[in-house]
């Protein structure tokens, strides 16, 4: 069972309190009604699913109930960092040092 740091509660809590919520930094256009089919496909259907560092959303469901973002290594399952929703993507190279 992983320990995950909730950036709102500012502490590590067991995985049981959290729910995974898909890839992070998939921005919904404020003019979504007008975007092209290709742009909608990218937004709705296409996910990066890499082997290695992923940016993903989690929800501290059985805690503060906030959604937040995390950078995790899918090979080791290690969380590099977690950060609040809306904050920019952290610098991966810096985290790996």
């Amino acid at each position: 069972m992983l320990l995950i740091r909730c950036p709102y509660c500012e502490e590590e809590r067991p995985e049981l309190e959290f729910r995974h919520a898909g890839e992070a930094h998939v921005a919904r256009s404020s003019e979504i009604s007008d975007i092209s089919d290709e742009a909608f496909e990218q937004f709705f259907f296409i996910r990066s699913n890499p082997k290695g560092i992923v940016f993903e959303r989690w929800r501290h469901l059985n805690g503060c109930a906030r959604f937040f973002n995390a950078a995790r290594d899918t090979v080791s399952d290690r969380f590099l960092t977690t950060y609040k929703a809306g904050e920019p993507k952290p610098d991966v190279a810096g985290l790996l040092k």
């Binding site: 919520a21 919904r28 959303r57 929800r59 109930a65 906030r66 959604f67 929703a85 809306g86």
Partner: peptide, 9 residues
């Protein structure tokens, strides 16, 4: 909650 917190905060 998802939309309120992340898309329409």
């Amino acid at each position: 909650e998802d939309y309120l917190q992340t898309e329409f905060p």
